[in-house]
Design a binder for these strands. Structure first.
Lengths: 150, 150
DNA sequence: TTGCTCCTCACGTCACGTGAGGTGGC
DNA sequence: TTGCTCCTCACGTCACGTGAGGTGGC
């Protein structure tokens, strides 16, 4: 609620891990394989520092990993596509591109989003089917409990 | 549609793998860790044979693995709980258990089902949230495409 | 100064992938 | 008899877990 202060406090790896529900080891591993920035300028042995933006990126990575069930390599491609879209938005606003280029940008963005949505919808349908089955079984058991004086 | 013939044709590991969308290696691995029966009576080097029941069990294993995102150890516990329920159903019908025992059986079954449903519902909510976000982004892009003569 | 968290190897584990080399059924 | 699928090691890989031993900031 307070206005953003001029300097954000830096976070340490343990803080980040606790906040997103993972381990320091996982964060270091994601840095190692290039999923997280990793601060190229950090001397070996020095402590890692993170910002709120890093926390959000990590949360997005973990969400895609858990919900879509894809490899970290694929997750990397998905978040890179996200950042490509962000870059394109900037190009859109700052460079005032030609109409043809505008259509290109939009078509590419739409392609990325549709591909992700296809993944999400397929899983969603499967999950709902499983939920329906389980609920039917539960109803059956409950009916029996009433019959037999639960 | 034809009546079940007296002898079902046995399936080989490649047939099973193709039908459920996995590999022979995975099936052998599941046998190794005890997720699939494995035919204790099979001499080493002999071909493995499977039935339709095995195909269904494997499909259920893969469904739980993919949709719930749990370890194979946990998947094993879930399918064992399923089989325990099947056994209890038999006890129910054949042994005509005492009312107290009946309540025990039902309470245990309900616990297992509720635990699975909790997992399924949490994932379902998260997936829906992701779907909603993606759909909002898609709408935004589509609106722009119309504005700029897509 | 004392804990606590952080650091870097480095080996272990889970869930398979991937050949190497060989045997058995349409 | 010729392919094709199957078999058993066994090493490789991905995504981390888990100490071992040491250094740095409230």
């Amino acid at each position: 609620m307070s206005p953003a202060s001029t300097t954000e406090p830096d976070l340490r790896i343990g803080d980040v891990a606790r906040r997103v529900g993972t381990t320091a080891r996982t964060i270091r591993y994601y840095e190692e394989i290039g999923l997280l920035p990793g601060g190229a300028g950090r001397p070996s042995g020095q402590h890692r520092v993170y910002t709120e933006a890093d926390v959000e990126r990590l949360q997005e990575i973990m969400r895609l990993r858990d919900l879509l069930g894809v490899s970290l390599d694929e997750v990397g491609r998905l978040v890179e596509a996200e950042e490509a879209r962000a870059l394109l938005r900037r190009e859109w606003h700052e460079d005032d591109p030609a109409p043809e280029r505008r259509r290109e940008i939009l078509a590419e963005a739409l392609g990325h989003i549709d591909a992700q949505l296809a993944l999400v919808h397929r899983r969603s349908v499967e999950l709902e089917a499983l939920a329906t089955e389980l609920e039917a079984r539960r109803s059956k058991v409950r009916r029996r409990m009433k019959e037999h004086g639960g």
